[in-house]
Simulated scan of single mutants.
Amino acid sequence: MAENRASEYREGTPCWVDAQLPDVAAGKRFYGELFGWTFREQPDLPREGVRALKDGEPVASLRRKADGRLPTVWTVFFATPDAEDLCRRIRLAGGRIIAAPLPLGDLGVHALVTDGQGAVFALWQPGTHPGFGRRHEPGTFAWVQLYTSDTEAANTFYGDLFHDALFGPGAQPDFGRAPVSDVFPAEMPPHFLVHFAVEDVAAAAEEVVRLGGRVQVPPFETSYGTAAVVTDNQGASFALLRR
């Protein structure tokens, strides 16, 4: 798909998603049935990592959590040509570096950071792995929404860091910001919610429940489509989206 070439990923474009799970085999069964994913073992990924494929193209990765005390989560990666420089700018903007840039073989360089309100996200400086092979199709990444305690501060933080991706000529961002209280209890901490495209949100939510997951927020209308918030059978939250 031409739109998914590495050159198309401006800095600040969501380019990959990764789930950290207690049981990768259980994750393969859940997402394989829900989205029709197949899987390829990735010895160059840490902690029993597997690459998820849709129609033979990479769409996500699943990894075993390094520590049982860590959250079971989906993490979004934003593209950058220079992870070291972006980490420097994140610090200056009031964010924090959780894990400094680290090469992952020849695949690329990754880092884990937070914004000024504490929402966690990752950076990806591509090597041989540019990111999604497919997106914006059923069973693939469609959107990421930041639910935050301060949308004005978030818009300033990300608008400065990722201006071209969000506001530049021809920008078609897959990234929105909204108050936590729009969807979740106000006391929930700021966080990113990864959305996967589906043809029928209600039917997909029913399938989540059949597979052992649960529905956190039933289907609702947003400015970018119909969404539902669900968790998988191990507690990782994500959203289903029909645009």
Rank of each mutant, 00 (worst) to 15 (best):
H195M: 06
A153V: 10
E199W: 02
A100N: 07
E84L: 05
F162A: 12
F175G: 02
G94L: 00
F184W: 15
A178N: 07
V183H: 13
P190D: 12
D85Q: 15
A119G: 12
G170D: 12
P173T: 07
F167G: 01
R88D: 14
E187Y: 11
Q145T: 15
H110D: 07
V180R: 03
P103Q: 12
A171E: 06
D85C: 00
F175K: 01
V144Q: 04
G94R: 02
E152K: 12
F184N: 08
R177G: 00
E199R: 14
T151A: 07
V120Q: 14
L146R: 07
A100L: 03
G133Y: 05
Q117G: 14
G131Y: 04
A203V: 06
P185G: 06
A154L: 04
A154I: 06
Y147T: 04
F132T: 04
L112V: 15
T148W: 06
G94E: 01
P103G: 09
Q117C: 11
P173K: 05
D174W: 02
N155H: 15
R89I: 05
G133V: 04
I97N: 02
P173C: 07
G170P: 09
I90W: 10
L146E: 07
A171L: 05
R177E: 13
P103C: 11
F141E: 02
E84V: 13
R134Y: 03
V208L: 07
A100H: 13
Y158T: 06
G133C: 04
E84Y: 06
A99P: 00
A171I: 07
T156R: 15
E187T: 13
D174M: 03
P189R: 08
V194M: 07
T151W: 05
V120K: 11
G105C: 08
I97E: 13
E152R: 15
L166D: 10
A154Q: 05
P185I: 09
R88I: 01
V180S: 10
L166A: 10
V194C: 05
D182Y: 08
L161H: 09
L92S: 10
F132K: 01
T140Q: 02
A142C: 02
E199Q: 11
A83T: 07
A153C: 01
I97R: 01
F192V: 09
L102D: 13
F132A: 03
T156K: 14
S149V: 03
